[in-house]
Design a protein around this nucleic acid. Structure first.
Lengths: 148, 148
DNA sequence: ATTACTGCAAAGGCTTTGCACGGGT
DNA sequence: ACCCGTGCAAAGCCTTTGCAGTAAT
């Protein structure tokens, strides 16, 4: 928990119980929960917690770059505390997301043709400084959680 | 317009004036409009058109696979009538999207390491059958429209 | 002591839905 | 003639916001 205090301090975020619990839970989660899911995961551990605070916290953490917010085609957003560049797998028909294991993720990202990406930036007259890659899978995610 | 009739027929979609106008406008657009934007683009050409119909139409077209629906971090969805695999560029701070020119898009997609993607599928126990790639750019899109 | 954060409830934006009417097949 | 699609308005979901009280610095 001490690392979190430092991390928050570094970003000028107050270390409230709620924020730390939300962030810690998100970090431990592998399933990229929605705000609502996160609320249900954290609530039992805490006397007081409101859904609004979960949203406010996620907003603050996104702003600080500690959390990535990912819109889904379900209308809700999912959140990820892993800020390294990495891939996700999404599943047709659900809004669920899974991480691709780091080694494989890195392998793919390293092999992206940088020259082509630079060409694209030049062609559109913009500076490209990030890539989001989502692999789309048929079927259902293997129930390999890690949230609790 | 005849091609559109055939296309719709092939997918068991009724050829209403509204649907055809919405689809045609979306096809001609390069900026991946939202439902609201599409409504404002199409409305002037049509006596009767409601926003609900635009939504219903986009739902029907997505269902038929003629249109791709893309959630944004702005809360709204953007739509794309180009169903070929292709890249988008998004811009930090806005919900706007631009297409990457087909040649460059194809060049990048072809150079994706297929073996790594297959590894990922095996590792997660799923069948990967699609990839969404979004390049993220700093700054604002060059005002190169093509909607009107 | 100061100031930011929380919780609640209400408001907001985007999207969907129920129902009667009209257009497409 | 049948039935789906449209339009309108209301409802729905996710998220944000205003405000008073509370906790963090």
């Amino acid at each position: 928990m001490v690392e979190i205090r430092d991390l928050f301090a570094k970003h000028n975020l107050r270390c409230t119980q709620q924020r730390m619990a939300v962030y810690e839970t998100l970090r431990e989660s592998v399933s990229h929960p929605t705000a609502e899911e996160l609320f249900r995961l954290v609530k039992p551990r805490m006397g007081k917690l409101s859904l609004a605070t979960v949203y406010n916290t996620l907003e603050a953490l996104s702003g600080a770059g500690l959390v990535r917010r990912m819109p889904t085609n379900n209308g809700c957003c999912r959140y990820d505390a892993n800020t390294h560049d990495h891939l996700h797998v999404s599943f047709r028909g659900t809004s669920e997301l899974r991480d691709v294991p780091a080694a494989l993720s890195d392998a793919l990202i390293e092999r992206l043709p940088r020259d082509v990406i630079e060409d694209i930036g030049r062609r559109l007259g913009v500076v490209i400084d990030g890539v989001n890659i989502e692999l789309v899978a048929e079927g259902r995610p293997a129930a390999e959680d890690g949230d609790g």
